[in-house]
Design a protein around this nucleic acid. Structure first.
Lengths: 344, 344
DNA sequence: CGGGCAGCTGGAATCGTTTCCAGTCAATTG
DNA sequence: CAATTGACTGGAAACGATTCCAGCTGCCCG
């Protein structure tokens, strides 16, 4: 069933049918009805390949997601999909392994599909530097800043990771914690983790707390399983900790489980601070005290920026969306006076 | 940059270039190299619209997901995407609201996109009866059986919900629980919930336990927030319960949170049984005792069945994949002798 | 009455591929 | 040496839409 058949059946030319289908103004009401009747009757749908071939555009948008365990991203992806659909766009999601090597692969796929725009969740700047040179379509990086790259087609939206991490540590220190462990991604390969770490360090300095990077931190993937193991390693090496800052809520869940398996209570024996503010934070036991990223804004603005870029609206933008602290039950006032007295 | 340019630059015909690009055998090694060199140099990618237009096929697969809160589906979607990618297919995910009205909308989109196959997670048979009449491409329904529909193009893969729910209740009853609440979807609109409910009822009968459908059950969406509220309503109405069976782990998390907020300990005061076996089950506090669906098999077999159908391999199939009980800490032996003594 | 114009229509060119088919060239064979 | 083969090759016709452009009305006005 093609446009030609419709033309034949409705007794007019293909051009007219096309005009009806695309709501062009200069076609008489009578003809429009006649054509629509035939179209309805046969449930005709124009062939998108032919359409896009002629129009020289795709409509599809690619969503690249790095680290599928990340529930924040799952939330974002869903919001984004809905928003795009409201704008008559549809999106293909590509999940990338947290390990880097699959990325070029995904970009390859992405280029084959010729999306008209790309949303990248959690990507590293290195990927862009290395592989996005030849990507010409507009691109929005979410939860990471690409300000320093200033590519012609690359915008970015992020939480102020440094400030958020600062506040997390500040919050813990303000409750008396002096020995705080930090669990996050690989500092050297992930800007996001690195910036959060910097925020931590600034807070430690400001409070005059010593911070031994080697001892008090432990790299981990952003998954419960990895964080579980990492927390055990960390606590074995550094048993004097009274609080742990996990750089994602999913990790925090793993950490809490690990602590309980070690016979420690949260928050009575040790406090845990999360990051992200995923929905489970409000339902877990104990409820997570966490840094809450604004997924609604990230999604809405991300989509808006991308669509604007696709429409050809000027220069890339690099925005920072606000975060807020979400109080839970996983952080307690530090009362281990005995411990602190004994140490040193 | 088109295939014609490549032809001109490499000094041969378009047909030859096309053959090189598609790895056809009858092209000399020399020509192949020459063409590939030009292709590499310019980073040429053939236009998929033209390709698919000519080949009369899309390669895309649509994944329809009903109820985005469902983490089991999130897990499945990711596995499926990876599997499809390994088979050189790419997929577009459409999230549907748990409310029905959006479905036709999605089907509309689906038809515009002309996917070559559809994977439907958690769909109701009514959707198919109503809206899938005209969908001609192969379709696989996951986590629900479509055996009774016997559409030409509709396969299905599911866990034996009835047996699984039976085992859940049987497990609880076997640990001394006599008053068990059930939290699930809307029995009348969701076959999945209904079959699980039937399994429950069979178990109650077999143990000779009374079961008041109105009092002891509470419908809820498959989300933490809804289950939280539903559990509170249920317990207010029916305070003598010693165990609650939640028809998804996500719901179980909400239930546990609600119970704690009511001052009840899990599992000491009241036991909670989940369903799905999502990864968080092993990390939550307490660890969930739950029915574990085999997501690996669901994904692998689902993809296999769909791809086979696309290749045109005969009749639709309706398979049942095994489940298993995952022991956690959210169910305890019922020792409320006082309670039981007092009642009646 | 004829020229001009507006409103509508349909033929045909176009988009970038794939693939059929006819053609070239060199090697092999009777 | 001519004929037959086989391995390659390139021109051109699809695929199904959009859109330019030319044509056909009917109408108004001078």
């Amino acid at each position: 069933m093609t446009i030609k058949d419709i033309a034949r059946l409705s007794g007019c030319g293909v051009a007219t049918v096309s005009r009806v289908l695309n709501n062009h103004p200069d076609v008489s009401e009578k003809t429009r009805c006649k054509v629509m009747a035939v179209v309805e009757e046969h449930g005709f749908q124009p062939n998108n390949n032919a359409k896009h071939l002629k129009q020289q555009v795709g409509t599809g948008i690619a969503i690249l997601v790095k680290g599928s365990q990340n529930m924040l991203f799952a939330d974002l992806v869903e919001r984004i999909q809905v928003l795009l659909r409201d704008n008559d766009r549809d999106a293909t999601v590509y999940y990338l392994d947290e390990d880097a090597n699959e990325v070029t692969n995904a970009i390859q796929l992405c280029r084959e599909r010729k999306p008209v725009g790309i949303l990248f969740l959690g990507g590293n700047l290195e990927y862009f530097r290395a592989s996005f040179r030849h990507v010409k379509v507009p691109c929005v990086l979410l939860t990471n800043s690409a300000r320093e790259l200033d590519f012609e087609n690359l915008s970015s939206l992020t939480t102020n990771d440094e400030a958020a991490a600062f506040q997390a540590i500040d919050y813990l220190a303000g409750r008396g914690h002096r020995k705080i462990g930090v669990l996050g991604g690989n500092w050297s390969s992930s800007q996001i983790s690195y910036r959060r770490l910097q925020g931590c360090q600034r807070a430690f300095e400001q409070w005059g707390l010593s911070f031994d990077l080697e001892r008090q931190t432990e790299p981990s993937r952003y998954s419960m399983a990895d964080a579980y193991e990492a927390a055990k390693r960390l606590l074995e090496r550094c048993p004097e900790l009274t609080a742990i800052f996990a750089m994602s809520d999913v990790m925090a869940i793993g950490v809490i489980r690990a602590l309980r398996d070690l016979g420690k209570r949260v928050p009575e024996d040790i406090s845990v601070m999360g990051y992200d503010g995923i929905s489970i934070a409000r339902y877990s036991v104990p409820r997570l005290t966490t840094i809450c990223q604004d997924t609604r804004q990230l999604a809405e603005q991300g989509v808006k920026v991308l669509l604007d870029s696709i429409e050809g609206e000027g220069r890339p933008v690099h925005k920072v969306v606000p975060f807020r602290m979400l109080d839970g039950e996983s952080v307690a006032q530090c009362v281990n006076k005995v411990e602190r007295g004994r140490s040193k």
